[in-house]
């Protein structure tokens, strides 16, 4: 197949960028979207042009590196699929394809299609864990956990941290990302002692990073390659509001 690409090119952080047109000829429908970009890049390099920078690593939909806005849709047209698992058979011969980086103040562009998503790490760092210093754990079967609680926790824990939820949200909100972690840990007995503190701190950090609010458009759920439900956002809101009305001891003991 032959395609026309319009790709965002930006030489560096803060530098001006623009959409540049490329022809992608002789593309096999069996290729993944990233392999198509590989081919375009190989040809660019053969003609002495700078290849298009884009983040990618595992190419099997689990590392969360790839982050392409394809024709206005985060990770492109296939549901529950990261850009790397999107195949060219999802496109028509002769189609025009627009490719852009995620857009959010909290995700500054590094180069071309590469953005900095460290903000998501910082949201985890302030509370997205169950503290268990190595060596302090009881036997794994000491606490029984109902199967359905683990399954619902796992649905949320699958988040790959790609940031598609932010990219797809009209408000640039990171609520689905944050809520997925709050839900995962909040459903397990191991997550209970820090549950209120976790919700409070992660929600605050989300705002500090400059993400937008959640207006419940539902776009994040649709964009999520792991199809995480906005039910998690309801849980986050509940945990946060409950933490305000009944702060747990850990939160009360804290000096901040």
């Amino acid at each position: 197949m032959n395609l026309t690409l319009h790709v965002w090119r930006q030489p560096g952080p803060g530098a001006p960028g623009r959409m540049v047109r490329y022809q992608a000829a002789d593309i096999s429908p069996e290729m993944s979207f990233l392999e198509m970009l590989d081919v375009v890049n190989e040809r660019l390099m053969e003609t002495g042009e700078a290849p298009i920078a884009f983040d990618h690593d595992c190419r099997e939909g689990i590392c969360g590196s790839c982050s392409l806005m394809i024709n206005g849709v985060a990770h492109g047209p296939e549901l529950g699929t990261a850009s790397c698992q999107l195949h060219m058979r999802s496109f028509r011969d002769g189609q025009e394809i627009h490719v852009e980086p995620w857009r959010a103040r909290a995700f500054p562009v590094v180069k071309d299609l590469v953005v900095n998503r460290s903000a998501l790490d910082r949201i985890i760092a302030v509370g997205g864990y169950a503290s268990a210093p190595t060596g302090s754990a009881p036997d794994g079967n000491a606490t029984l956990i109902p199967k359905d609680a683990v399954e619902t926790a796992m649905d949320a824990a699958q988040c790959i941290g790609c940031g598609a939820c932010v990219a797809a949200c009209p408000n640039g909100s990171a609520s689905l990302f944050t809520a997925a972690k709050i839900t995962h840990l909040g459903l397990l007995p191991q997550g209970q002692p820090e549950r209120g503190r976790r919700a409070r701190r992660m929600v605050e950090q989300m705002d500090i990073e400059g993400f937008g609010q959640c207006s419940l458009y539902g776009e994040c759920q649709e964009a999520c390659p792991k199809e995480i439900s906005i039910d998690t956002i309801t849980r986050m809101n509940r945990d946060y509001l409950r933490a305000l009305t009944a702060p747990d001891r850990a939160a009360a003991a804290e000096s901040d």
Partner: peptide
């Protein structure tokens, strides 16, 4: 909130963002 959402995405998508499931009401 309107100010916050504007600040959260200072550079708009050049080729636009295609709404998938959000309702007309919400937008």
């Amino acid at each position: 909130f309107t100010a916050r959402r504007r600040a959260a995405r200072p550079v708009a998508y050049a080729a636009g963002r295609e709404p998938q499931v959000s309702t007309f009401a919400s937008r």
